[in-house]
Design a protein around this nucleic acid. Structure first.
Lengths: 180, 180
DNA sequence: TTTCAACATGAGTCGTCACTCATCTTATCG
DNA sequence: CGATAAGATGAGTGACGACTCATGTTGAAA
């Protein structure tokens, strides 16, 4: 792969992440090209279809989220790591936007495979640890918590909550997960 | 207004509610026309722009939701009415779909006015009653609960939760609102 | 430096969708 | 019954967005 090609690919990915974060996945490929400073054809050379571009962004993002989870599993306090991660995920979504379609595989549905499983597994591990440390209600199931997570994420994005409201709402959700 | 015109208007509204519920607000006006059994021109005669059609649906829906809230205020048990209403709103959204953009005024933003205020007020009344009956934590604020509501609604829709998962998740949210 | 495959370019194609309008149809009123 | 205005029709228009391709440019191997 030529050097300029690699550089352009990176630029396009960065631009796409910004543009899709700002205007949602319906933003035009042309705007991505403009933001990246390349012609429209170049975008389609690197990503033959728009969904490929979205898929690439998602993949990068999942990678980051998995890394973060594994770091917390390795180094975090079991009592708080789960809550920190939940908060981190919502905060990321508030910034990155496209994140929303992550744990649910929807959207331009691609590769429901390995990474999703790794992510779900890491999330479960953090949750189990918190439960064993007595920080989470023993009767909540992981799918419910993931549902809560996607809901909070969707909500934070779709209705443009203020930073303050988002924080308070997330805390309220997390509070509901603690033992009474 | 001629009789056939009134009939067509009603048909279009019903068709639009179905179509937008199934395919989201991005469904084409042409499909609404087809489902209603009228030509495309007829739809635009009654609703000069697509957003007018969406607005009309929203207005009907808000009317129903307000009525339901007022019925619960008048006849319900203060301890449970709030929770029933919250559940009802999420269930409605699961069926009706377009509901999502309701309490947040977003989407085809029209008339953030009277009805929204009535809805917010009714919701607040139910919540206050529940709090005074000792059924809701005294430290949660209405805006947080509305945020939770929109989040749950968005989540239930966007990721297609099963009926069972939706019920469990809503119960988990509501449980978090009860005093410890 | 030469050479050429890889790459970039952007005007153009095709499909879709909101919306229009000239023409035809019909409910309703006297 | 007419007469007619209100209403219905659906082919057509313009804008937009994903994607293509003929042509021009350049990194890097020899």
């Amino acid at each position: 792969m030529r050097a300029d090609a690699r550089r352009n690919r990176a630029r396009i990915l960065a631009a796409a992440e910004e543009v899709f974060a700002e205007h949602g996945a319906s933003a035009s490929t042309e705007e991505v090209a403009a933001r990246a400073g390349v012609a429209i054809g170049t975008v389609f050379r690197h990503f033959p279809a728009k969904r490929d571009l979205l898929a690439a962004i998602m993949k990068d993002l999942r990678r980051r989220l998995i890394d973060k989870a594994e770091a917390l599993i390795a180094n975090g306090d079991p009592k708080t790591a789960f809550f920190d991660y939940f908060t981190y995920l919502v905060e990321s979504s508030a910034k990155i936007g496209t994140v929303v379609n992550l744990l649910a595989e929807e959207g331009p549905s691609i590769e429901p495979g390995e990474q999703i499983m790794a992510l779900t597994h890491a999330f479960g591990t953090l949750m189990d640890a918190a439960r064993e440390a007595g920080a989470v209600r023993p009767d909540v199931r992981p799918d419910e918590v993931i549902a809560l997570l996607t809901a909070t994420t969707h909500g934070a994005m779709a209705a443009g909550w203020s930073d303050d409201l988002r924080r308070r709402t997330v805390n309220l959700v997390l509070d509901g997960l603690r033992p009474h």
